[in-house]
Design a binder for these strands. Sequence first.
RNA 1: GGUCCCAUCGUCUAGCGGUCAGGACGCUGGCCUCUCACGCCGGAAACCAGGGUUCGAUUCCCUGUGGGACCA
Length: 490
Amino acid sequence: MAPELVEEMSRPREQIRVLPALEKADKGVVMRFAPNPSGPLHLGHARAAVLNDAYVQRYGGRYVLRIEDTDPKRVDPHAYDMVREDIEWLGLAISDVVYQSDRFDLYYQYGRELIERGGAYVCTCENEQFRAMKLARKECPCRGRNIEDDLEMFEKMREGEYSEGEATLRVRTDLEHPDPAMRDYPAFRILKSPPHPRMDACLYPLMNFSVAVDDHLLGITHVIRGKDHIANTRRQRYIFDYFGWEPPEYRHYGRMGIEGVVLSTSQMRAGIAAGEYQGWDDIRLGTLRAMARRGIAPEAVKEAVLDIGIGETDISFSWENLFARNKALVDPIANRYFFVPDPVRVKVEGAQEQVAHALLHPAHPEKGTRDLLFQGEILLPREDLEKGSGMIRCKDLFNIEISGEGEELSACFAGESLADARAKKAPIIQWLPAKSAIPCTLVTPDGNRAGMCEHGVAREKGSVVQFERVGFARIDAVNPEGIIAYFTHR
RNA sequence: GGUCCCAUCGUCUAGCGGUCAGGACGCUGGCCUCUCACGCCGGAAACCAGGGUUCGAUUCCCUGUGGGACCA
């Protein structure tokens, strides 16, 4: 048989997509993940983080985490820790960590050099005034100043002699550029407040400047980022050109949304402040910590992101895709338990006291059983009882015959035979011993479901279990009042 | 308003001039099963529109439409 045919046949059904090759990557790569510490990481960050990580793994090299905290307005002091935790959760193979707030002296130094090379000038025009000239493709008066004066003014900017907005260092680009957004964009600005949590400064580099300088200094060879940065890539090119540096290879993937979720950090923050969300890990949010709390495995996020890839198409990502990946990971290992939502207490007449031995996992008998003691009274889901009278198979126990309705409902023993239940097409449903069941709240994005569960669930704190016929859930807390479980997915 | 990207089943994705347009999720029919889970076997489901180029366009070009991004 032809070898490629053998390979074809032995290839697993569900393979992870192979990402397109990168240019000039044969000798290894240096890539980066560069988040703002403005909040915890969300799925949008995960895409950038995982994609870059995957390429570093593939080609070998270094993976730099660069904390981009050059804008004090967009720094949340708590975010440094959150970002670190989230990266740890994702399991990225970070090799270097750099804080931009440690590198301001470098930025000043290169800012001066850019002026010396004729690539930048200090502009003291009013914002409105400059904008008007820019749109008219006209030079502003500051553009013609000589280099010595610009250097001197830049120094004064650093020393705090200008007030906020009074002076800006602009990159000299091309006033004829068809895109006005490219014309003489700012590289440094004065900011007197808010204070930066990690340092003391009043002259701040803007993102395009610090990013270009750092990409070069850190030896970044390839950048995979969203296409919302295409304009920035073009702006940064001017800086590379002025310094005679070779820019990295860029790839810009499309915009990503997730159905029903806000991915904007500022909007999430506002929602939390307004009490709309419980916190950054509110399960209705698209943050990684929210996913972790619901019981989504980091590998599922990784796989989902790799499946999306680096396509330039704008997409609206569906939770279903992520859930499916997670289910494949979690189903083989999650222990099974009974959770009875909206329980109804039923006395079963005519049955012997006995113990039901239910497998913790149907595919792994060696994991053992949960032993449920039947003593006459059980709890059953209201929803299943409302379907009317008839035979019900209590899973792993025996059959019962339901008669009557509502408060008059009664049940009597109807044999042990599973075959009998099958023949009568009796539904097989979960149940609980009334005595040993404990309260359990299932938290879902649509609200809480009150119910009861097996006492054994108490030993599963922190792990994901499957509530049979209900779905997967992560056991979040085990309190004296009961168990809090977060619904993962069906 | 200016500039720039993008367009394949409901969703994600493969495709790089000639394919029965492939796969995954979801949906659905059946089998298996002491869960409505898992597994197995089937099914429905897509090339945004109109012009070119070409013997031949999902694929190349133009226009429109529809999404999106950046600057303001």
